[in-house]
Write a protein that binds this DNA or RNA. Structure first.
Lengths: 202, 202
DNA sequence: GTCTATATACTGATAGAC
DNA sequence: GTCTATCAGTATATAGAC
């Protein structure tokens, strides 16, 4: 997010609001079709703009998608709290995040479709998801290490392995939940997994 | 697969071979781009055919994709053996399947991208994946129930929950593996999870 | 069985008026 | 800031010759 010194509030605030409307609409569109199927015309239509008009705010499809991902990351970070909590607190936060996700199907759809597309090597999002994955693994591993240092982790459990299994489970549960929303309780599955790795009550 | 009585072998065998060539090429194309980005022209080019020529063998994009999914299901079934093994044998088979997958990145890509697209309600594959999911859950749940009946499952573990966690883990690990092939040992993660639910050596 | 040619429909992006 | 008009590219599918 860049700020302008020369246009501090008035017109800028209006443009900013407009840009947020566009991002909201883009979330709807990319959730329902992913990057490849989602079209700028569709996004534009939802905010009462022509496609060319939309391109005035975001000069390309990629730049719009980038804004969507930034918005989603900011949303998740805000949910977990800043600075990101450590140890068991982070693990508890991830369970609460799963509960939150289950109340926002759109967010889950967005994550599932974009992260799958992002695994493909020549997808515009590939680099973003590779980097994000590295970062998330690092943070979750640190949480398990902190738990281990506090004697809260079962003996023989490797922190990085536990972190990877946890994150894979989170991702896989989201796919499964989209296929069977009433049959899958994402947070409960995560809690059970975490409990099986810990020596204390989560 | 329909067979013809009037053309028992010669020309039919040739056509059958051609159709398999096409399916192989389609796996490559849909692996790399999913349903929406994968194009018939691309598939056709890989087997030295024009796009219209390809449509002679599979009259629509959907029919070709259907053939691809059938081929993949048959492949997995053949790997696990028929009839599908029961109890611990099935669980061991799923671990071996993960090892097999790790030697076929293309299969993993195909599964990850198509199953993500298939979660979207209006995707042509949605019905297929919903049905497949139900079926797979049923089989895996039965395997855990069999293990429980043999006293091989830890007390307090619900068979269906264990099955769902296992399958979510399998799916999530594939996404993760595509982002970091050297850092993720899918089979090892599955084995650890299963071992944590069982009273006997897997 | 395979081709060329074509119909029809979208796509993202640009040019330039207002 | 938003529009219309347009360009160049892509897609699936069909018609009909060979």
């Amino acid at each position: 997010m860049t700020t302008s010194i020369r246009r501090p509030r008035g017109p800028y605030a209006k443009t900013s609001r407009r840009r947020q409307e566009i991002v909201d609409a883009a979330v709807e569109v990319f959730s329902a079709g992913g990057y490849h199927k989602g079209s700028l015309r569709d996004v534009a239509g939802r905010v009462g703009l022509s496609q060319a008009g939309l391109l005035h705010h975001y000069p390309s499809k990629d730049s719009l998608l980038e804004a969507v991902l930034k918005w989603r990351d900011d949303d998740a970070t805000a949910f977990l709290g800043e600075p990101v909590p450590e140890g068991l607190e982070l693990l508890r936060g991830l369970v609460r995040l799963a509960e939150y996700n289950a109340s926002s199907p759109e967010l889950v759809e967005l994550h599932v479709i974009l992260s799958a597309e992002g695994t493909l090597p020549d997808h515009p999002l590939h680099g973003y998801f590779v980097g994000r994955h590295r970062n998330v693994i690092k943070i979750a591993t640190a949480a398990f290490q902190r738990a281990a240092a506090n004697g809260q982790l079962k003996p023989g459990v490797d922190s990085e392995d536990a972190a990877r299994s946890l994150l894979a489970l989170m991702d896989g549960l989201q796919v499964m939940w989209l296929l069977d929303r009433d049959g899958v309780d994402m947070a409960a599955h995560l809690r059970r997994y975490l409990q099986s790795q810990l020596t204390v009550e989560l």
